[in-house]
Nucleic acid binder design. Sequence first.
DNA 1: CTTGCAACACTTTTT
DNA 2: GTGTTGCAAG
Length: 723
Amino acid sequence: MDVSHILDQLNPAQREAVTAPPGPMLVLAGAGSGKTRVLVHRMAWLIQVEGISPFSLLAVTFTNKAASEMRHRVEALQNMPVSGMWVGTFHGLAHRLLRAHWKEANLPQAFQVLDSDDQLRMVKRVLRNLELDETRWIPKHITGFINARKDEGLRPQHINSGGDPVQQQLLRIYTAYEVACQRAGVVDFAELLLRSLELLRDNEELRRHYRSRFRHVLVDEFQDTNTIQYAWVRLLAADKSGDGAHLFIVGDDDQAIYGWRGARVENIHSFKKDFPSCLMIKLEQNYRSTATILNAANALISRNDDRLGKNLWTQGKQGEPIKLYAAYNEQDEARYVIDSIKRWIELGNARSDAAILYRSNAQSRLFEEQLMFDGLPYRVYGGLRFFERAEIKDALAYLRLLANRSDDASFERVINQPTRGNGNKTLEQLRELARNMNLPLWQAAQTLLQQPGLTARAGNALRGFLQLVEGMHEAVKNLPLHEQTEHVIQHSGLLDLYRQEKGEKAEARVENLQELVNAARGYDFHNSDVVETDMLTAFLAHAALEAGEGQADAGEDCVQLMTLHSAKGLEFPLVFICGVEEGLFPSERARAEGGRMQEERRLCYVGITRARQQLVLTYAERRRLYGKDYYPLPSQFLGEIPAEYLQDVRFGNSKPSSPAGSKPQQQNGRGLMIGQRVQHQKFGEGMVTNYEGQGSHARVEVNFRNSGSKWLVLAYANLEVKA
DNA sequence: CTTGCAACACTTTTT
DNA sequence: GTGTTGCAAG
């Protein structure tokens, strides 16, 4: 059999991993070392050479994007669609299990998936029911608590409060939340994982079934797994009994940047202990970056402890030094970055080959303004995704109510959206009744209408809502999905509501609602992993599990803006990492909390290794953040990169272009400009960071080395200009 | 039920 | 500095 197409393009280490005999395997894959390629080729190898049926393969990733890329690449190697193979995210696969075995998992067949926003609302309702003060029991903290416990595999009954009243109260809320979810037939993200873990763990028949079915389980980005995800993988793993899957784990401990959301790098270490016979292969040859960039990254990350350890190398060129620009302030930083990008584009490069990376989303604004001023198309990653938009969630809530009347969260969301006379008072009565009789709100509403107590007007309004939902359900029952959607946004009044609103926002909302119809039309039920359910429920799960893109115009050639976190897995010829300052990157919180610096350093490592040809690091000497001025020190990470790889391009390298909001570089006849070093009789040495006004009113802002920043009237300040 | 104002937060993000 | 959210007045 000719296997050259599987092995030809692989280096020795990659080949060793791809062709390894069955058994636990840990592939330590450095940045840009061909990690996905190894996973994909391994799958092709198993199918084509080892003769493993795709039916016996399970591959799990963290994002839908990674999952679909993996599937496509396997199919490309295979030269045909591969069916029967399970490829998906942990959540997607868990969802698939629960759909297939809803009875065993003690769920209603039409159970719905809560996204984080739904979950937050749910918690707020629970708090209200328990009559707890939301200022003392902060809903966000509560969801954080619940999710963290679930991610550790802990139900309320597993947790010992140790007599701590706060802990006891939290457990009470956790318990009430679980009861409410169960009654409503909804499942949050963490619950998907926990419940499917419990399903496999406690149901011997099912466990046997899946353990004998899956011969190979491949896990991508293993350093990002949390406790329960690793437990889930282990349940399927081969043991002495002979059945169970061979685990093929791919990850990079140096790129573990999600500890703050429950990921445990330690799982990589545990894996070696849990599977002592495991093979470890390091992929250290990098195909992405110049030697300079790699050396800098290696030097930086070598400061971390407890690494499994690897050293990236390349056969490629030395490349340009890493540029380091010290901006006067954040405006200057933006101007420098965008000017550099403009020059780069003038050399014939694509806009999309340049990426601006930053630690926090708040930093994107200035870059956006500058890009807008210069007329450069750009795209900001992150932000609200399609299925998370309020109008979309409204429409989905109606659809969910059609699928499942017990979904209280959806009921509350739309009972008065658009307003139809169901006010707070009615809602309070409903909640009270639902609580007392232990009923979903829907049934409570029906009950309430049978009893006296509502005013005629309130009763009519409530009846109107119930009839609206029933009526829509009746009308829509046998229609295709997109017509159901269309009917619902029309007849619920949502479309009219937003049509009547004015402003760009409302227009966008109407468009989004129409886009939802298109999404429903395009939804491929048959291509989905979901079995044992109807089209509508499947679509709703799809909406919750795959929130969609943030912006529609992804296709255009544009400059890429994103956080360092969302840059993971991507690469760009030209990369800027901005705001490399103490307090921003590393973040203030990481600095304050001991032990968080290592993850911050890994984040820096991730950022550096995104760059293929040219890397530029920038920091500002003055930064305005949340309406306050800061004079940050350059990031300690800069000092951890050997100077031989760095080139200072401090001051004057940026061609001025008078962008929006910026001021001409020349300030009056004395040649004073931003960045100018000056001497003051009383305050000493400093640097001009800003100025305003003209002539005798002209004022400058000077950041003095020893006395901080001051505004001075130029005419009186008697500043001495330094070289 | 809508409108307006004050309080609040504000690292990172997928599912 | 900006945007969201919750509450009270109209």
